[in-house]
Design a protein around this nucleic acid. Sequence first.
RNA 1: GGCAUCGUGGCCGAGUGGCUAGGCAGAGCUCUGCAAAAGCUCGUACAGCGGUUCGAAUCCGCUCGAUGCCUCCA
Length: 495
Amino acid sequence: MALYQQQELNIYNSLSGKKEVFKPINEGNIGMYVCGPTVYSNVHLGNCRTFISFDLIFRYLKHLGYKVRYVRNITDAGHLENDADSGEDRIAKKARLEQIEPMEVVQKYTIDFHNILQKFNNLPPSIEPTATGHIVEQIEIIKEIIEKGFAYEANGSVYFDVLKFNESHDYGRLSGRKLEDMIPNTRELAAQSDKKNPQDFALWKKAEPQHIMRWPSPWSDGFPGWHLECTVMSSKYLGEQFDIHGGGMDLKFPHHECEIAQGEAATGKNPVNYWMHANMLTLNGKKMAKSTGNNILPTEIFTGDNENLEKGFSPSVARFFMLQANYRSILDFSNEALLASEKGFNRLLDAYHLLDELKPSEKSSFEVAAWKQKCYDAMNDDFNSPILIAQLFEAVKEINTIKEGKSQITAPDLEELKKTMSDFLFDVLGLVDTAEAINDDTGNKLSGTIELLIKLRAEARANKDFATSDKIRNELISLGIQLKDGKEGTVFSLD
RNA sequence: GGCAUCGUGGCCGAGUGGCUAGGCAGAGCUCUGCAAAAGCUCGUACAGCGGUUCGAAUCCGCUCGAUGCCUCCA
């Protein structure tokens, strides 16, 4: 029996605004689409948070035994900087500034994106399609939408007719907006536009002569509208209707609203059952965004080379910090918060390592099965990683007490505890055990050396030669190696 | 201006009608040659004002404040 048959997963659905019991269209299988980045500059930390949130979700779904097809796109076609039918596309702009081909821009920042996400230990998606690789499909779906009467051509561009669509459908139901409210609300800046109404959005844009990224179409040499690629690629790889669609909160409107409209216009079906939105990461209380300059690069976290940081932090610490907040809450980034997470994370890993040294007893004073279910309950409640982490810290307390001989655990319970800790820590939360890094040849030599120093210190202490023993302890601590004296002897940990 | 989300102890963050997460920092104790590590104990918080209720941080209303979206953004 698969785990998912034993655990009832609840997901907060942005469409209904409620937590709902999750039920996939095809039992045991899940189709999940997440809006990926536009690759025109380095990913910033805020982007990473969204993808780490969905990585957690992907990992937990897989852990439950689902077969998940996770599709995340790369937006590599340039889109306009604004919607007023003017302005440069962002990839082309970057290409001009860096004096390289637009596709070089795309390649450069796609690689950066992959590198950084790998450092955060994100699993790669099952399929990572690109917008430019699906121009043909996008043209086809535009034809369909025109045929159904929900789009019109104007001067070589094609626009989605939002007002027409809203007559028979409900435009705005995802973001809680009403078209009637939006109309008097738009300013008169679209005088020069080809649109019939300001709410209409582009499916195809005719390229200006200087526009480099362009493709032929029945309407003009041009490029597809931004919202279209997600509709096309999600339906191509996951079907006209699929289970989960995710993305950053800022994409809810208009991007996801437009996706629903496009999907319904083309197929007549509601494309997505569960909409999930990851919240923003803020810096100094403000949204991180490339365009405003209020951002921090992941590399700067690792090196500490940023005015907001006093030191560098490992990717796992940064990941742990993010997972200590729910994906639906705004999270504010700060040096202090990172420091707190780092300490907690190290304590968690230290306790995990202690598991190998625990001696089993005849009976357990820790109810492992009940605790384990609490871990699942946390994740079943809309992927509540902060609660899961709180539960893991409950186990830390138990492990340390057992180590001190003040509690007991049976051999089977110990195995179960270890397995569960490992499952959640590494498979579900996707954290990396820093101690494993020294498990190579150099690492073995290092630990052998430290063991020797521990022995020498023990001898010095036995001889009451505290000057020598303290010297060993202090020199090691200044190298980032901490000695921990316990009842059973001394162990060490690396910072 | 419209729509939405949110305001929790020194800090970060869960909870969302009664049983008062967790982490970090702080205080005391145990252990220790001294420390560190570890364990135990402690803090009794939910923006403000009204209302509903036997009972509200949790529901409703208002006020104040913050953030996001309304043009590209995870």
